[in-house]
Design a protein around this nucleic acid. Structure first.
Length: 489
DNA sequence: CGGCTTTGACCAGCGC
DNA sequence: GCGCTGGTCAAAGCCG
């Protein structure tokens, strides 16, 4: 009975947040309060580890004052037992108390997760709003320029028709160099003029362009952003869950390995293409370059790749759309965030940007082995256990000066792209490992960090599973599932 | 027989 | 203008 009263006090205490204040112990209790209750509060401090996100407190202090027992597992109740002595009733009460405490903690985490989602929505909304404004301003600006050009250069019929098929913003905003170089859409347009008897490309083009016009991202300049994925594979191509048809092969200059061209055949008129080429220096590395967005639903095995490339491309597009990607990447916030990402657990996936290529290309490098995970407790307390989930990949970027910068700086002055947000949110929601990782993280915290090795093993196992999941050869990149956990910070 | 791959040809952009 | 290169086409062949 006395234990139940204590439980209620603990609950009220947790909700009040008083446990976060170091001097609350001495102030808020009755003089005749037993030392047992004081011990309870000490243990509560550790259980409510995650609350540190809003209230900084001395982690080292908490750890040194609460880690007890030879097993290294401190649930905070051993202290009670040690003072009360042992009995069977005490054991039941202990279990009940532990369960109620864990339930409380889970509820709080749910609430926190909900808040984070809400915050994510708000950030996304503001980002979209900002993006709309930028687009509007740019369109207004360029339309004036384009109007002047139309007065100067009257268009021939066929080429004008082809141009009219393009999204309006493409006509206006694509840099001259991009327009001069023929894009796949241009090729389709050429086929229209040729009148290929085999493939009804006109209809395909119509549907494709219609779909593109509905996609706000496609209205951005640099619509032909590419996403390259470097992965080790012995197979001729990476199994990414999509169906591809090879339509060409060329010997690329400076590489003895031929470059293969594939087109997505999962839907008629899908504009997505990919190029597959082995690295000249290391033939075990397969470089797959994706271009375009699928215009059809994808099988689950393909969603990860598609979402990853789409998110990367969206991130690239959003960066370039903000008038100067290079400037964005070189912003002071970029370098200031580096210290944050030095704490980031995974380095296996590295994204590099190439602004010098004909098309802006983002490269996801999956060839580096994962770094053994040693998450600092501050990281866990600040960003939650989701930050330790597999695929919390460190993303780096490179500007033209090859200076190592960090892509997530895009999340500083800019909010994450909608596609990134959605894919990451969906990944978190669908991730079956989330609950397990949450429980593991909680037990790790309760255990006072003595289970680091085990925890690392679990996480590394998850990493392996995630890397091989959805692809037989394990080369498909996965969603940066837990990116939102820290990107919205 | 339909779908896919192979491969030579073609075209456009770009640099000299 | 010419040659090089990247990207694509399409006929022919292959395969299940």
């Amino acid at each position: 009975m006395e234990e139940h009263i204590q439980d209620r006090r603990e609950i009220a205490f947790l909700h009040s947040g008083e446990f976060l204040h170091g001097d609350s112990d001495s102030k808020d209790h009755q003089p005749n309060e037993s030392p047992v209750e004081r011990h309870h509060e000490s243990s509560i401090k550790e259980v409510d580890f995650f609350a540190a996100k809003s209230q900084p407190f001395d982690l080292g202090h908490v750890r040194t004052t609460t880690i007890v027992g030879s097993s290294g597992f401190n649930d905070g109740l051993g202290l009670v037992n040690s003072c009360h002595g042992t009995s069977s009733n005490d054991g039941d009460d202990k279990t009940k108390t532990q369960i109620s405490r864990l339930k409380l903690e889970l509820e709080r985490l749910h609430e926190e997760n909900h808040k984070l989602k809400h915050l994510l929505d708000e950030v996304s909304e503001s980002y979209n709003d900002l993006q709309r404004r930028v687009l509007l301003a740019r369109q207004t600006q360029v339309e004036g320029l384009h109007h002047k050009q139309h007065e100067d250069v009257p268009q021939a019929g066929s080429s004008q028709a082809l141009e009219n098929r393009r999204p309006k913003d493409m006509n206006h905003e694509t840099p001259a160099t991009t327009l001069k170089r023929r894009s796949p859409d241009d090729v389709d347009g050429r086929d229209m003029h040729r009148g290929s008897p085999k493939t009804p490309r006109i209809d395909q083009n119509k549907s494709t362009n219609h779909e593109e016009q509905q996609n706000p991202h496609d209205q951005l300049p640099y619509r032909k952003a590419r996403v390259s994925v470097r992965a080790r594979s012995d197979a001729t191509t990476v199994n990414d869950g999509c169906q591809w048809r090879k339509y060409g092969q060329k010997m690329a200059k400076g590489n003895p390995c031929p470059r293969a061209y594939y087109r997505c055949t999962m839907a008629v008129g899908c504009p997505v293409r990919k190029q597959v080429q082995r690295c000249a220096e290391d033939t075990t590395i397969l470089t797959t370059t994706y271009e375009g967005n699928h215009n059809h639903p994808l099988p689950p095995s393909a969603t990860a790749m598609a979402a990853t490339t789409s998110a990367a491309a969206a991130m690239l597009l959003s960066g370039s759309s903000s008038s100067n990607l290079h400037q964005t990447l070189s912003s002071p916030s970029a370098t200031s965030s580096s210290s944050f990402y030095h704490n980031f657990p995974y380095t296996s996936t590295i994204a590099t940007l190439s602004a010098s290529a004909p098309f802006p290309t983002i490269t996801l490098d999956l060839t580096n082995p994962p770094r053994p995970l040693q998450p600092p407790p501050q990281f866990l307390s600040q960003y939650g256990p989701a930050a330790f989930l597999p695929n919390a990949n460190q993303i780096r970027s490179m500007n033209n000066n090859n200076q190592q910068l960090l892509i997530p700086n895009l999340f500083g002055p800019q909010a994450p792209p909608r596609e990134m947000v959605d894919s990451v949110r969906a990944a978190i929601a669908m991730d079956p490992n989330f609950t397990a990782a949450l429980a593991a993280a909680i037990s790790n915290i309760i255990g006072g960090g003595n289970n680091d090795n085990n925890n690392n093993t679990d996480i590394n196992d998850n990493k392996v599973d995630a890397k091989s999941g959805g692809s037989s050869n394990g080369d498909s990149p996965q969603l940066p599932q837990s990116c939102t956990t820290f990107s919205t910070n």
